[in-house]
């Protein structure tokens, strides 16, 4: 009786130790997924795809019916906004031309911002828990997806690829507590790191901002391109509030991401980036 009781406890301790070792051995960044992971992913992927498709459909129809009443009014508003944006676009075009001319004057080598080669992908599943923020998409090795490729939507930065199977890829969202993105405040070029808080939080935070630096609500934060994974200039979020880091030297800004991660359906994976800083003289980074 006694010995069987001890046997059980011994067995349990062994299981716990093995599990702890396995946790340590299977971090986020790995070259290759193991066989059981691949099998579970491949078996469940079609079901996830169908379930996500159905829920998206139902949600879209509900949203459509709910929006019927306000469509005319919205249409009117869009027309006004369109006119405004058109004029803005013309002005931007002016700047673009001017920019090119000035660059030629400065003899900058040609570089192309926003020159990405993209693959579109559909979200088929989410992380099962509430702590981590990852999504599974329906593109994998077969489509040329590899680890550390950035993922974007027109609204802004989504995250990066952390694991790939033949048909699916796992994307670490910028809201995941394990994510860190080199970023700058768009206007002041003040650098920092944008970290996830937790999947359920809905916000991210920018750390390593010097105390006393001019960080204000509503300022936009974009990727800095440092670190080599994310291309520079991709929009991340808008500053909500700032607070002093209890540690002393820094302040922390709370950000609202430009991307609505709860409604993420399709995204782009950047397979090739022509990094501009490679072609730029060093002082061009200032």
């Amino acid at each position: 009786m006694f010995s069987s009781h001890y046997k059980k406890i011994f067995f349990l301790i062994i299981v716990v130790i093995i599990t702890l070792v396995v946790i340590k051995m299977t971090p986020l960044e790995r070259e290759q997924l193991t066989l059981p992971e691949t099998v579970v992913k491949i078996v469940l992927a079609p079901f996830q795809q169908v379930a996500t498709g159905l829920s998206n459909g139902i949600q879209d129809s509900i949203a459509f019916v709910a929006a019927l009443g306000t469509l005319a009014q919205e249409n009117e508003q869009f027309k006004k906004e369109l006119a405004l944006l058109k004029s803005e676009l013309e002005r931007t075009e002016e700047y673009r031309v001017q920019n090119r001319r000035l660059k030629e004057l400065l003899q900058y080598k040609q570089f192309t911002v926003a020159n990405y080669q993209l693959v579109t992908a559909t979200v088929i599943g989410r992380n099962a828990g509430n702590w981590f923020a990852t999504v599974t998409v329906n593109r994998g090795k077969k489509d040329g997806i590899a680890r550390n490729m950035p993922a974007l939507v027109p609204a802004g930065l989504v995250g990066r690829v952390v694991a790939v199977s033949s048909d699916t890829a796992e994307i670490l969202l910028i809201t995941d507590p394990r994510s860190g993105v080199g970023a700058v405040i768009q206007q002041s070029r003040l650098p920092g790191v944008v970290e996830g808080v937790a999947s359920g939080a809905g916000t991210v935070r920018m750390v390593h901002l010097p105390k006393g630096a001019p960080v204000k609500p509503n300022q936009a934060v974009v990727t800095s391109g440092l670190g080599g994974i994310y291309p520079p200039g991709v929009r991340i979020g808008r500053i909500l509030i700032t607070e002093d880091d209890p540690g002393g030297l820094f302040q922390i800004a709370k950000l609202e991401p430009f991307v609505d991660f709860s409604k993420l359906e399709d995204l782009f994976i950047v397979t090739v980036v022509y990094t501009p800083e490679l072609n730029l003289p060093v002082e061009g980074m200032e």
Partner: peptide, 24 residues
């Protein structure tokens, strides 16, 4: 314990990282 092991393992395999967190 058995169902927790099974459920945790499936969750971990699908997540593809830190397999065992859910198991424990």
């Amino acid at each position: 314990v058995y169902s927790g092991f099974l459920g945790g393992l499936l969750t971990g395999f699908l997540a593809g990282n830190y397999i065992g967190l859910s198991v424990l």
